[in-house]
């Protein structure tokens, strides 16, 4: 096929093509996370006396930190829909990351030594990691499917950012169920779970977002 012939084929396929709408993808992604986490919480229930618990700063931080990270990362993830987008500026993660590290260190000093790692039982770790990962799978898959209509020139990075945003959103919702209020526990294992979802996003993105 000569290139000029290819051009006439492409021109014959010049049907109106709806422009990409990142705002719609953002709204649908938020909805996917909210529905999945909402379903989980309505089936299994939020923690007892959630409202009072949220008045305690370390409990509120468990929801606010991942939510903040999600809000900071999501716009960068969405920008990956178009070719030539820049990556995540490291400074953007500096605030939530230093808050998380600070919280961990503060708890390490505030909590008496025998209690520091008291919650680190295999069952608790599996529950926390497993549920955050499990709840992230469907929203992440949906988000990547929607992002496939875009044209990311760095598919693995776009997938990782999507995973980071979804993982953080899910972790924030999951914290309303979780009763492990020691930051040493939740910073470590929420962080690990979010890291796993990010890695999964990168691996899936490399495949799904190629074009």
């Amino acid at each position: 096929m000569k290139t000029e012939d290819l051009i006439s084929i492409l021109a014959a396929d010049a049907t109106p093509d709806a422009p990409l709408r990142p705002g719609q993808i953002a709204a649908a992604s938020v909805l996917a996370v909210v529905v999945v986490v909402g379903l989980f919480l309505s089936l299994i229930g939020v923690r007892p006396a959630l409202a009072q618990a949220l008045l305690r700063p370390e409990v509120a931080a468990k929801a606010i930190l991942p939510l903040l990270t999600c809000v900071l990362v999501a716009p960068v993830a969405l920008r990956q829909l178009r070719p030539g987008a820049a990556g995540l500026p490291a400074a953007r993660l500096l605030v939530p990351l230093s808050l998380a590290v600070g919280l961990w260190l503060w708890a390490f000093m505030a909590v008496p030594a025998p209690l520091r790692f008291a919650e680190w039982m295999p069952s608790a770790v599996v529950e926390c990691l497993g549920l955050i990962l499990l709840l992230s799978l469907v929203p992440l898959w949906l988000v990547l499917r929607m992002m496939g209509r875009g044209a990311s020139t760095a598919p693995a990075r776009a997938g990782a950012l999507a995973g980071l945003a979804v993982g953080c959103g899910v972790a924030a919702g999951y914290s309303l169920f979780c009763t492990k209020d020691n930051p040493i526990f939740y910073v470590t294992f929420y962080g690990a779970a979010i890291g796993l979802v990010t890695g999964l996003g990168a691996i899936a993105g490399r495949r799904v977002l190629r074009w």
Binding site: T3, L6, I7, L10, D13, D17, A18, P19, L20, L81, R82, P83, R149, G150, A151, W211
Partner: peptide, 12 residues
């Protein structure tokens, strides 16, 4: 050319 065609909707 084919990539430009299939991704033309990503131009803002």
């Amino acid at each position: 050319l084919i990539a430009l065609h299939t991704k033309r909707h990503t131009w803002d």
